[in-house]
Design a protein around this nucleic acid. Structure first.
Lengths: 202, 202
DNA sequence: CATAAAATAAAACATCGTTCAATTTTTCTT
DNA sequence: AAGAAAAATTGAACGATGTTTTATTTTATG
């Protein structure tokens, strides 16, 4: 057992979150319990409550990490010199890939939005905005035709759309006639939405 | 305490589900526990396991009810003699209203999609399809321009989009610049998507 | 009326989040 | 350096949970 001041509170926090990520990835979010995390890092359950207010607080910090990770994931897959449409499709594909690769983590992102009664803290909202900003910046070339306000709104709508496509795994659950993949759905969303949005219509 | 054969198993099932709906609506999904449901209907917890395989099974049946209810809700609000665009906007608004009015119920619909490991049973998928079919039928007038296959795909994408808009309550959580309401987002999604989809573009 | 079968209750189990008192280790004071 | 104060950590405890098992009651059956 770890004994006094082997690690600072900040270190324990780090260790706990590392353990939490591993548990979620390898055993699923249902196995993410206080005791499991504590014993994994060589402490007992009481210690966790020294560095986190409660389990929800820990999950919030865990989700913040996921958002950072997702943001980097999307950044790494962005391509230069592409049309907004191409950029968005790359982003959507990357988002879908992340959700598929780290499903448990990704799910927790939205479970928490439900369970948290209080408002989300600023440091969390900032992480959300960062991810969200990627879609926004892909749309900025359209600022000539559309106002900045409309761009922001479109980015929200598009992200929500891709999010919904991932959430309802319709491709898997409702696949009755002809397997339409998640990415195909996202492509359809982006193509048609952008056609309408970028004003190529009468 | 209720005593032997006061109610058939089917009646107990009904009572339990009625109690569950009330609990979820009035106290939230977190208060939906086996003991709470059992005592509400005047039985003890063991009896519940006579009519449901486990709590997840009960939630699944509860969700089936919600889907039926949602389907009727959407039906009641449909309008006749309207363009696909109008129909879809009415549907989207109704969907959003339902999610707002019965948030706890509505949330459980998608939490369960996550937690259930096994495939969803047929009787549940049929309920999903029924709701989904409403969007599809609103799009059928476009069958001339687009193939039946494309209609089905578009319905999926649009529903997913509205779903995502509801899920990320961006209007409330990420509302940094200018309050864009959920319905406005849905309108933007449908308008632009349909413009692109219905082929009014070059 | 006795006995089998079913329905229900009650108790038990392991686990959970959370709190708290007890114990150990460090730091501070003189 | 020694003892007191403070902090870190444990371990036990509490109430609640999902689920299973045992015991009891009620009905049905012969």
């Amino acid at each position: 057992m770890a004994r006094r001041s082997d690690h600072s509170r900040e270190e324990i926090k780090e260790m706990a979150l590392n353990a939490a990520v591993t548990i979620v990835d390898e055993e699923g979010s249902k196995k993410l319990t206080a005791r499991h995390v504590a014993t994994t890092i060589g402490y007992t359950v009481g210690t966790l409550y020294l560095v986190f207010k409660n389990l929800d607080d820990m999950v919030l910090h865990l989700n913040a990490r996921t958002l950072d990770d997702l943001h980097q994931w999307l950044l790494d897959r962005r391509i230069a010199d592409a049309t907004p449409q191409q950029q968005l499709q790359v982003l959507a594909d990357a988002y879908i890939d992340y959700a598929a690769a780290y499903t448990a983590r990704w799910n927790m992102l939205f479970e928490s939005l439900v369970s948290v009664d209080n408002e989300l803290p600023d440091w969390y909202l900032q992480r959300l905005s960062k991810v969200f900003g990627l879609i926004e910046s892909a749309l900025t070339p359209l600022t000539n035709r559309q106002g900045q306000e409309a761009i922001v709104q479109a980015a929200r709508v598009l992200w929500a759309g891709v999010q919904g496509i991932c959430t309802l795994k319709i491709g898997q659950q409702l696949d009755l006639a002809g397997g339409q993949s998640t990415k195909e759905m996202a492509r359809m969303l982006i193509d048609n939405f952008l056609k309408g949005f970028s004003g190529e219509c009468r």
